[in-house]
């Protein structure tokens, strides 16, 4: 850590709105890749925090949302300053989790309850690349017929873990995949077939 802190959103209100719409679009059209373009100036969060993942955290997290992240002390300090979010050590306590390395097991995160399935975690996963039109075949709410999404850099056994997550519906976690300034979402309703 150098002791200096890079800036957050240049236009807090407008940038947060733009990012939220990208996340909302991603969540309501699973597998469609959104780009967080047009931020002024572009976010430069401390490595290994990517631009999209950092923007999502700034948009959604605050003092009310415990955050778990594995991106190191500089990223924690950055998030604590800009979002004011409490950083927790136990993945099960977090509302938002950011994994730049291997993520914690999906079943160990907050799943919500049958009566309150919305009290579940959102996992933000940094991956190497996101491409539409190839790879997984996605179906479910938000998808007219099928969307195709290729995700590079996921941990071993992710597809099986996701299957388990989907089986817990209406409980379960929601996933945001981020690569640089690109972003796609898999809500808990999305079914995934390996194409």
């Amino acid at each position: 850590m150098t002791g200096t802190l890079t800036a957050g959103f240049g236009e807090p209100v407008l940038d947060a709105q733009r990012c939220f719409r990208a996340v909302l679009d991603a969540m309501s059209r699973p597998g469609r890749v959104q780009r967080l373009a047009g931020l002024s100036p572009p976010l430069a969060p401390p490595a290994p925090l990517g631009a999209a993942a950092a923007a999502v955290l700034l948009t959604l997290s605050d003092a009310d949302t415990p955050v778990w992240l594995d991106a190191g002390a500089a990223a924690e300090a950055w998030l604590r300053f800009h979002a004011g979010a409490p950083i927790v050590a136990a993945p099960a306590e977090a509302a938002f989790l950011l994994a730049s390395g291997p993520p914690p097991a999906l079943r160990d995160l907050a799943q919500g309850t049958d009566e309150e399935p919305h009290r579940s975690a959102t996992l933000i996963l940094e991956v190497a690349a996101l491409e539409e039109g190839d790879g997984w075949r996605l179906t479910g709410p938000g998808i007219e017929h099928a969307h195709w999404l290729r995700v590079t850099g996921l941990p071993e056994g992710f597809a099986a873990a996701w299957q388990g997550n989907r089986a817990r519906f209406p409980c379960g976690i929601d996933l945001l995949l981020c690569a640089g300034d690109r972003l796609a979402a898999l809500p808990r309703t999305t079914a995934l077939e390996i194409g």
């Binding site: 939220f20 996340v23 909302l24 969540m27 309501s28 948009t59 959604l60 949302t65 509302a95 399935p117 919305h118 579940s120 959102t122 709410p141 938000g142 519906f169 209406p170 929601d174 809500p187 808990r188 309703t189």
Partner: peptide, 12 residues
């Protein structure tokens, strides 16, 4: 509200 909206979309 945005957090509530995202969870609402995830659980139709």
């Amino acid at each position: 509200i945005r957090r509530a909206l995202l969870k609402a979309v995830a659980i139709p």
